[in-house]
Amino acid sequence: MKLPDLLIEDLDVVFCGTAAGDKSAELKAYYAGPGNQFYSIINSVGFTPIKLLPSQFPDLLNYRIGLTDIAKFAQGVDAKLKSSDFDVMGFKEKIIKYQPKYVCFNGKEAARVFYSLKQTKNIKYGIQTDIIKKTKLFVAPSTSGSARGYWDENVWKELFELLKNRKVHKS
């Protein structure tokens, strides 16, 4: 396993990527690659009150945030991953077991793998119509430095607002 899952029951959101990047695997920390905006964006839209370092990823549980990947035993850029690297059923089993309120795919490629599609062109950012048991699905632009051309902070804000509004309505 390249990176351990960061999962406990009833999290607000679990962010799911395709696989650990080479730098993340080397440092044993999620989203540790140069230029990755994950910790910046979750801080700037309100998920965390401070910007964490990749080495502090276990602290995300304090903010009801979890992390996983669909390919747990592979690493590298998406283009180098093979279909046999992905374990969609294992991913679904984890989500059913831990039942987060939302899964957010960090990038369309992770969503493409989950949905078993050939291309990402029909995947839309934002809330999806499918669910895993009670868990809602969301797709956000990848935080990878190599995906900068697709970046839209507003989609990340939309997810934060969905979670914030849900907490307000639960009380």
Rank of each mutant, 00 (worst) to 15 (best):
residue 109 E to V: 13
residue 109 E to Q: 06
residue 113 V to Y: 03
residue 112 R to P: 01
residue 126 G to L: 12
residue 111 A to I: 03
residue 86 F to M: 14
residue 124 K to C: 03
residue 83 S to V: 12
residue 116 S to A: 11
residue 60 L to W: 04
residue 133 K to H: 12
residue 124 K to L: 02
residue 66 G to N: 03
residue 75 Q to T: 13
residue 103 V to A: 04
residue 123 I to E: 02
residue 73 F to Y: 12
residue 58 P to G: 06
residue 65 I to E: 00
residue 92 K to F: 05
residue 117 L to V: 10
residue 90 G to W: 06
residue 66 G to V: 01
residue 76 G to A: 15
residue 124 K to V: 04
residue 66 G to Q: 02
residue 100 P to N: 10
residue 93 E to C: 12
residue 96 I to C: 02
residue 70 I to N: 03
residue 75 Q to C: 14
residue 115 Y to A: 08
residue 58 P to K: 10
residue 94 K to A: 15
residue 69 D to G: 10
residue 84 S to W: 14
residue 78 D to H: 11
residue 67 L to T: 00
residue 92 K to E: 14
residue 86 F to Y: 14
residue 112 R to S: 10
residue 127 I to K: 15
residue 98 Y to I: 00
residue 88 V to H: 11
residue 101 K to A: 02
residue 96 I to K: 00
residue 61 L to C: 04
residue 100 P to Q: 01
residue 82 K to R: 15
residue 113 V to L: 08
residue 79 A to W: 04
residue 120 T to D: 07
residue 128 Q to F: 03
residue 135 T to Q: 05
residue 133 K to M: 09
residue 70 I to T: 03
residue 70 I to C: 12
residue 125 Y to G: 01
residue 60 L to H: 00
residue 86 F to H: 10
residue 108 K to V: 03
residue 104 C to L: 12
residue 78 D to Q: 07
residue 88 V to N: 14
residue 61 L to D: 00
residue 122 N to D: 14
residue 86 F to T: 02
residue 79 A to P: 01
residue 72 K to F: 13
residue 111 A to M: 07
residue 71 A to Y: 07
residue 127 I to Y: 13
residue 124 K to A: 08
residue 135 T to N: 05
residue 97 K to E: 08
residue 83 S to E: 15
residue 83 S to A: 12
residue 94 K to F: 12
residue 94 K to E: 12
residue 106 N to P: 03
residue 101 K to T: 00
residue 112 R to K: 15
residue 88 V to P: 07
residue 78 D to E: 13
residue 111 A to H: 05
residue 123 I to L: 10
residue 70 I to E: 03
residue 66 G to Y: 02
residue 77 V to K: 08
residue 133 K to T: 13
residue 107 G to L: 04
residue 108 K to D: 04
residue 62 N to Y: 06
residue 131 I to V: 13
residue 84 S to D: 13
residue 99 Q to D: 01
residue 119 Q to N: 11
residue 120 T to I: 08
residue 85 D to K: 07
residue 121 K to V: 06
residue 134 K to C: 04
residue 112 R to W: 05
residue 111 A to P: 00
residue 128 Q to N: 12
residue 103 V to C: 09
residue 126 G to C: 09
residue 98 Y to M: 02
residue 123 I to M: 05
residue 99 Q to E: 11
residue 95 I to E: 00
residue 63 Y to S: 03
residue 77 V to S: 09
residue 135 T to G: 02
residue 60 L to P: 00
residue 129 T to A: 09
residue 86 F to L: 06
residue 96 I to E: 01
residue 108 K to A: 04
residue 58 P to A: 06
residue 65 I to Q: 01
residue 103 V to L: 07
residue 63 Y to K: 08
residue 68 T to E: 07
residue 69 D to S: 15
residue 125 Y to S: 03
residue 123 I to D: 01
residue 109 E to H: 05
residue 109 E to G: 01
residue 98 Y to H: 07
